[in-house]
């Protein structure tokens, strides 16, 4: 017993919190990755999460069945990558090629417009109905602790996606170029990199990460047109906790948020689960305004 709480219950919550934390991290990583390469915030991230959950749902329900969810996952990611790349080409690229003066304001307006567009489109096409692709994964027991099979699969899938992302960044030439662009957008261009094409790839990868989170969580949370809202909020909470533009910050922040929500649920009340993150955020901002891994911006 710890503070009157059963240790077994506590560890169960902690494990569940960390498992969800992996998915939060995935969401935050998408935001921070697009920011670090393109120096713009994509406010419509949650709608790509939603798109991912819908595509996964359709693939599983119409064609593949719940047992082949892991086949549907890469297809979903690829679809959303392509959708993201096309939207970047049509809506976002013009702000880098034309002489747009206030680029971050343009980015804010255009991605919020995209948020509303995608969400309304989904509502029109789908109606307000909630769906679930279902899952045949059995619930497991680790020691004496019960663990939901769908949640475990989601977090393992999330870890796989994170590893794949790391390999892409560390081991490929596109990854090398992406890391370079994150450090100097001018120098990569004068070195000979086609930055506009690289931006398209970065945006596609970033939104695909959100879509993977959406697809993995489809059987755990539900699939409906506004399901991206909560995860978007959490994604941005994590960005502030971890530090904008920091990849380790997104990972640590994601796990930390999952953990804090779990502890809050055990020690205080599960009803306020979505509020604990904000307490963490405010407490952290008081101590470290740049976030855990953030750096102070230098002008010019």
């Amino acid at each position: 017993m710890l503070l009157g709480v059963d240790l077994q219950l506590l560890s169960q919550y902690v494990i569940a919190g960390l498992m969800i934390g992996v998915l939060y991290a995935l969401m935050a990583l998408g935001v921070t990755f697009i920011y670090s390469v393109m120096k713009m915030i994509n406010w419509s991230m949650g709608q790509f999460y939603m798109l991912g959950s819908f595509i996964q749902y359709l693939l599983v329900v119409r064609w593949l069945g719940p047992d082949l969810w892991f086949v549907a996952l890469p297809i979903t990611a690829a679809c959303v990558f392509v959708i993201g790349a096309i939207l970047q080409l049509v809506l976002i690229r013009p702000m880098f090629t034309g002489g747009v003066e206030r680029r971050d304001e343009y980015a804010t307006v255009i991605t919020i417009a995209l948020l509303l567009l995608l969400q309304s489109l989904a509502t029109v096409l789908n109606g307000p109905d909630e769906h679930t692709p279902g899952s045949h994964l059995p619930n497991l027991t680790v020691g004496t602790l019960p663990v939901s099979g769908a949640t475990l699969a989601a977090s393992l899938g999330g870890i796989a996606a994170l590893i794949l992302f790391a390999v892409l960044l560390r081991r490929t030439w596109v990854g090398l170029a992406l890391r370079a662009a994150a450090q100097s957008r001018i120098a990569v261009q004068t070195a000979g990199v086609d930055l506009m094409r690289l931006d398209m790839i970065a945006f596609g990868i970033g939104v695909a990460l959100a879509a993977i989170a959406g697809a993995l969580l489809a059987p755990v949370y539900l699939v409906y047109p506004t399901n991206g809202a909560v995860t978007t909020t959490k994604g941005f909470e994590i960005i502030i906790i971890g530090g904008l533009g920091s990849i380790p910050g997104a990972l640590v922040g994601g796990l930390l948020l999952g953990l804090v929500e779990a502890l809050g649920s055990v020690f205080i009340a599960p009803a306020y689960q979505n509020a604990y993150g904000f307490v963490l955020l405010i407490a952290l901002l008081l101590i470290r305004p740049t976030g855990l891994f953030g750096e102070r911006l230098r002008a010019a």
């Binding site: 030439w173 090398l176 170029a177 890391r179 370079a180 990569v188 070195a191 000979g192 990199v193």
Partner: peptide
């Protein structure tokens, strides 16, 4: 890596 990027960029 700083040198390699220059090579692949072109």
């Amino acid at each position: 890596e700083n040198l390699l990027i220059q090579h692949f960029a072109c």
